[in-house]
Design a protein around this nucleic acid. Structure first.
Length: 594
RNA sequence: GGGGCGGUAGUUCAAUCGGUUAGAGCACCGGCCUGUCACGCCGGAAGUUGCGGGUUCGAGUCCCGUCCGCCCCGCCA
């Protein structure tokens, strides 16, 4: 490079610079060699600019330029000039100008790229992940990671403005028995003992509240050793925050302000606020999910009581086994063909694990066209029609199953069909606060388990229910939902150890169990814990939404595949016997393996 | 753990019913070309058809196993 330093970014060369000598550096995006004049599109983070090499202007530079290939790294000194009107390129931000090169320095050659460094490379994801360096040079990834940066900066600014301190917590943390599977890190100094990577900084941030930090936030890396999905990675990032001396109504405005400012500052989007609110119970009832996309206008109807004594055995047995019967009515549904309905039924059975999908089409004069019609009494049919407001042209879908399953099936169909049939309200963004999640839910054995985590504080007036009907205890838990995607969740936490102990009891921990597993937490609460509560945003999903991406992998610089591998680094990988030895570890082959 | 889709040149795809030497675009290499911008023209090189086994006179194609990628269920405070 010598002593020459770049003076301008390629993508920022404008008409204002015409006539001046500048130095740019970047990657040779494309070379067009006309034998005489040679054009090189030079690319950097900011964009492309055309460099012209003319033999009569700079013989040596022109000669050198003929050797330049795609992705070579070069530095150019030249003069910015207007393009003649017929050679202006309107597709390029810098297309009205070009740089006439006086000097070319080749800083590095490069192997040919495995695919085109373009908006859409056309390459398969395996190839893209293996060649992540080239993939990251593509504009969509450059934009996504820039967006991520803007999100972080906006969040930091906003939370700082609101009086939060940014405090780090350990990555080498401790395994706790609840929640997801831990990633373990063997300790060399304590042979046989393990750290766990944090699933979230939950406990530590509560300890920080007890320590008096009042308002904390952190851009925290979290680790959960569970199977991956398009929207789930082994490691992910949260904007984590916690506040002292607050109730729910003090936390929610902070979350709203954060989301509104991030969308404004990182995305240039004004979100309507305050955000609409809905209870967990209402969300499940009307939409079948706890994170409804409220832009979709279709809604579910509960028909359980209609079928208590029905002749239709599948429905009655579902109701008898504490299940529910729900209906997704779609009016004016002539666009839904019989073939489409059959396809949906197959989809429900195969993909969603449903027993089936009952349906009915209401014909002219209200005649039922339906495989279940003959099992339904006059009264049942008229009650269904009344409840669903069905009319000629309506199609009704029914799910009779345990509540979670029936809701999951119809909740999914609601969104799929709503989008497919255009039953949407036209908004680009639909933020929503979901409130009052229950503290407990029943587990498979009929006992209680926590719905989100064991530290969620009950709503104050429901505290007496802890002794009588734990199932009905509403929690202070809240979710922020955008377009049917959960951006994050939070709650007030139990700051009184007696309430926390009672909850452990209901969860089935003995006193000794609770002491052993959470003794340090209970002691900490007793050390003068203020009322506190907080929240954590899933940044990756948030950026995915803002970027309009389909997968978390498109907003993370170096993501892992569905099997948890990094195809670029080729991790995870075996380690040397010496390393294992130092950690007092031995690899034991699994049954059936050699 | 389960269901589904996929894997052929660097890359994106094609290859009839199981049948000649596995083809094409782009990329790559060489040559020509002074206004292109997906430059153009001429020529060239490029393959363990993911891997292993089987059926067959003959397998990219059929069968079995396995590996890898993606989507989903389970799982994920």
């Amino acid at each position: 490079m010598g002593s020459l330093r770049r003076t301008h970014a390629c993508g920022r060369v404008t008409k204002a610079l015409v006539g001046s000598e500048i130095v740019v550096a970047g990657w040779a995006h494309r070379r067009r060699d006309h034998g005489g004049v040679i054009f090189v599109d030079l690319r950097d983070r900011e964009g492309l600019v055309q460099v012209v090499f003319k033999p009569e202007v700079a013989r040596a530079a022109h000669e050198r330029a003929s050797h330049v290939r795609s992705e070579w790294v070069v530095l150019v000194r030249g003069v910015v000039e207007h393009r003649s009107p017929e050679t202006v390129n309107p597709k390029l931000a810098t297309g009205e100008v070009e740089i006439t090169a006086h000097e070319l320095r080749i800083l590095n050659s490069a192997t040919p790229p495995p695919f085109a460094i373009e908006e859409d490379s056309g390459a398969e994801e395996t190839v893209r992940l293996r060649h992540r360096i080239h993939d990251l040079r593509r504009p969509p990834l450059q934009r996504a990671l820039h967006l991520r940066h803007l999100v972080f900066q906006s969040a930091r600014r906003t939370l700082t403005d609101l009086g939060f301190f940014e405090i780090e917590t350990p990555i080498l943390a401790k395994s706790t028995p609840e929640g997801a599977r831990d990633f373990l890190v063997p300790s060399r100094l304590q042979p046989g003992s393990f750290y766990a990577l944090p699933q979230s900084p939950q406990i530590l941030k509560q300890l920080l509240m007890i320590s008096g930090f009042d308002r904390y936030f952190q851009i925290a890396r979290c680790f959960r050793d569970e199977d991956l999905r398009a929207d789930r990675q082994l490691e992910f990032t949260q904007i984590d925050l916690e506040m002292s001396f607050v109730g729910v109504e003090d936390v929610l405005p902070v979350l709203e302000e954060l989301v509104v400012r991030v969308w404004r500052e990182a995305g240039g989007i004004e979100l309507a606020h305050p955000f609409p609110r809905i209870s967990y119970e209402e969300a499940m009832r009307r939409y079948g999910v706890d994170k409804p996309d409220t832009r979709v206008l279709l809604e579910l109807v509960d028909l359980t009581h209609v079928f208590r004594e029905t002749e239709l055995r599948a429905f009655r047995s579902a109701v008898e086994q504490q299940g529910i019967v729900k209906c997704l009515p779609i009016h004016d549904a002539s666009a839904l063909s019989r073939g489409e309905i059959d396809r949906l039924e197959a989809f429900v059975k195969k993909e969603l694990g449903g027993r089936g999908l009952a349906w009915a089409r209401i014909g002219e004069e209200g005649a039922w066209q339906s495989p279940i019609a003959k099992f339904l009494s006059e009264r049942e049919r008229s009650e269904i029609v009344g409840r669903t407001e069905a009319r000629p042209g309506s199609v009704l879908f029914f799910a009779a199953d345990e509540p979670a399953k029936a809701n999951a099936i119809l909740g999914r169909l609601r969104v799929d069909l709503g989008r497919q049939l255009g039953r949407v309200d036209g908004r680009a963004w639909a933020p929503l606060l979901v409130l009052n999640f229950p503290v407990f839910e029943r587990d498979e054995e009929g006992g209680f388990t926590y719905m989100h985590m064991p530290f969620v504080a009950p709503v104050e007036e429901d505290l007496p229910l802890l002794e009588t009907e734990p199932e009905r205890v509403r929690g202070t838990h809240y979710d922020v939902v955008l377009n049917g995607v959960e951006l994050g969740s939070g709650s007030l936490r139990n700051h009184r150890s007696d309430v926390q102990r009672r909850i452990f009891e209901i969860l089935g921990y003995s006193k000794a169990d609770a002491e052993e597993r959470f003794g340090f937490m209970l002691n900490a609460l007793d050390a003068g814990a203020p009322p506190h509560g907080g929240f954590a945003f899933g940044v990756d999903r948030l950026v995915m939404l803002l970027a309009g991406a389909e997968s978390l992998r498109d907003v993370i610089a170096f993501p892992k595949t569905q099997r948890g591998q990094d195809l670029l680094l080729d991790s995870p990988s075996f380690v040397s016997a010496a390393q294992l030895d130092e950690l007092s570890l031995r690899i034991v082959p699994r049954e059936g393996e050699t």
